[in-house]
Design a protein around this nucleic acid. Structure first.
Lengths: 154, 154
DNA sequence: TTTTAATCATTAATATATTAATGAAAATCC
DNA sequence: GGATTTTCATTAATATATTAATGATTAAAA
């Protein structure tokens, strides 16, 4: 019967971990007028100049329908820009504005500090082990939709 | 600079794990007309006859403002009932109806099967280790609000 | 080449999350 | 015992998640 306790099921453990970790980060984001999802989008754009919406959804882990609204509000805030591809007019690229890029140096130090503090609550070896095990749970990453996967096995 | 890769930060790893794990469970819930949150509430009520809203929020990991709506819809669906406490008229208790209890034997086997299959993707020892490490991240569980915590240190 | 199927961004409808605030009731303080 | 503070459930406003569907475009098949 009690094959597992509900409160100790993997999903609940994952949710609980997020509930423990995220509030302090969200507090930082909010100081800069950002939501968590808006920050995730910017975080990606700080590493890649120009990202298609589809890839952006994969990298930010924001579902495409939600991403539309997140991008809308970031654009309204003047932090990003949309650009429609010429080669494939279905595709939309997202780029950070100067204002959006400037946010990088203001937000990241705060986030890094909070993250470092978080890491200090654990042994480095345990931290690495945790990420390994989470990788196992996530399984083989589904290949980005924008690459032709099928080429490999036919 | 690259103290950590964004895609391998703990929050993103946790989100990715949930994205990998939850869809199959949600598919089961939806077969029975339940959302994930509705299922979580029922899952708690299948173990405890009567639960106060506050404790229910803690056990289901659903924030209180969201829980109000979840409970509303479960009540509208005839799966639960509200009862206001006589001793403390601020408190509201939630109880599963007969229909809500009957759902237990129909849903749980499906969920257990899916969960067992999920566990088989890992060595039991690794599984246990993962839960231990997640416990470390979650830190000392904040004591349920409905108990008088302060008694202990004053 | 014409038809068909797949992809991409988006909309729609509903449910939930987040944050702050509120009214009612209870506990605490003086 | 009356004023103050807490607690509890709830509302409010906005943002995001979930699932299904749509229109426009491109790729693939016949």
């Amino acid at each position: 019967m009690a094959l597992y306790e509900f409160s100790r099921s993997l999903p609940m453990m994952l949710y609980r971990a997020l509930d423990a970790v995220m509030p302090r980060f969200r507090a930082i984001f909010n100081e800069f007028g950002l939501t968590e999802q808006q920050w995730r989008v910017l975080r990606v754009l700080w590493e890649q100049e120009e990202v298609g919406l589809n890839e952006l959804a994969d990298l930010s882990l924001i579902p495409a329908p939600s991403l539309v609204g997140v991008v809308d509000r970031l654009k309204k805030g003047g932090l990003i820009t949309r650009r429609r591809s010429e080669q494939d007019r279905r595709v939309v690229y997202v780029v950070a504005t100067q204002e959006g890029r400037d946010l990088h140096e203001r937000v990241m130090p705060r986030v890094r500090a909070a993250y470092a503090e978080l890491m200090q609550s654990m042994e480095p070896r345990e931290w690495i082990r945790l990420l390994e095990l989470l990788d196992r749970v996530s399984g083989p990453e589904q290949p980005p939709r924008h690459t032709a996967v099928n080429e490999h096995w036919r």
